[in-house]
Design a protein around this nucleic acid. Structure first.
Lengths: 200, 200
DNA sequence: GTCTATATGCGGATAGAC
DNA sequence: GTCTATCCGCATATAGAC
């Protein structure tokens, strides 16, 4: 029971914080709650994190690591379009099943978040998957469009904005539009002559 | 100076609250702040709104009314694709220039929000505009896809997620994909024979 | 390294005086 | 109809004892 000199660690604190983001109160991670979960008082955490924001960044990074684990599974699918569809599945499943984690990351979106670390790894994976479909290396435009669509869909779905009647095929409609456009080149620049059907 | 029996009204309170959402502190409208802005103390507001949530719903409705005013301007454009592009412009401009208002509405997205009132009016306008492009009456799927894309793009852009390099043409890429897909019918069901170009 | 105690600030909501 | 006064809860963060 000699619980007094209880050694914490940054890793343990972050892990607990992630758990609380997912299962605790919806809005607002609190140091009190993290400390309580660890069987400790709030001020003790300041030995490991200078303030709340530093902890939040570590939590966001850890969550992106969890997302990356899921995203990496899609590399098993070699066909670009199949892989693209799997990426969509993984993205939406993560957002649906672990929405508090998902929304925490987006709410703590710094401009630098996707320039290094886990954020960059996730972003590179999205760019790579979209680029494989379009056949254009480093197709950032396709990745941005896809990301925006998935993010918007996930958040609107969660908020209940689609109402009781549901999204009515809006997800499939958008995906087919993107796939059709990506695989047929860049329509905005110069309509290619081969606008024939590109069915699988 | 006989300011004591100062008559408030629900309209005045909502108007003040909307102003504070737009120009006040980013997160969290507070009754205290609304009251202060009105030169009144917080408890006075309870004569007009039973609790904070009721006021919030009224505020969301008022903001949707502001959005509707902007959206209605696109009816001046008779060509379906032109009108669609104008709708995109209006949507993103509102989200960009009045982001606090925009995000307040989505954060208070009830499933019923778009079933009546201002929410329904806005939604009907989006559906109508998308349907005019696709030529299919009540094309909810196209509207949902468009909405998801625009909402995702607006929020990611605001959060700075696109980074210093910007969206890199992601907006245009997505829009062209949608327009191309919408005007050519439903690729998933049955390619229509008339896949000719529908340029202005 | 963790503790208690405390400073300071925010917020929603109610009772009862005027 | 608005007020004062207050209760209650939440939070971050610090000082200094142990």
């Amino acid at each position: 029971m000699m619980a007094y000199p209880k050694f914490l660690s940054p890793e343990e604190i972050v892990k607990t914080a992630v758990h609380l983001v997912e299962h605790g109160d919806v809005d607002g991670l609190s140091l009190r709650a993290v400390a309580a979960k660890l069987g400790v008082k709030a001020p003790s955490l300041y030995r490991y994190f200078s303030d709340k924001e530093v902890l939040e960044n570590a939590v966001a990074e850890a969550i992106l690591g969890l997302m990356l684990i899921e995203f990496r599974k899609i590399s098993a699918f070699k066909n670009p379009e199949t892989r693209f569809r799997k990426m969509v599945e993984v993205y939406l499943r993560f957002a649906r099943e672990r929405f508090p984690l998902y929304t925490f990351v987006v709410q703590h979106n710094h401009p630098e978040r996707y320039a290094s670390g886990m954020g960059k790894a996730v972003w590179d994976l999205i760019v790579g998957t979209a680029s494989a479909v379009s056949g254009r290396p480093d197709d950032t435009a396709a990745a941005v469009a896809t990301w925006a669509f998935l993010h918007g869909y996930a958040t609107l779905e969660h908020s209940g904005a689609f109402g009781p009647s549901g999204p009515k095929g809006g997800l499939e409609r958008g995906l087919e539009a993107f796939l059709s456009s990506f695989r047929s080149g860049v329509p905005s620049a110069r309509q290619r002559n081969a606008v024939s059907e590109h069915q699988e």
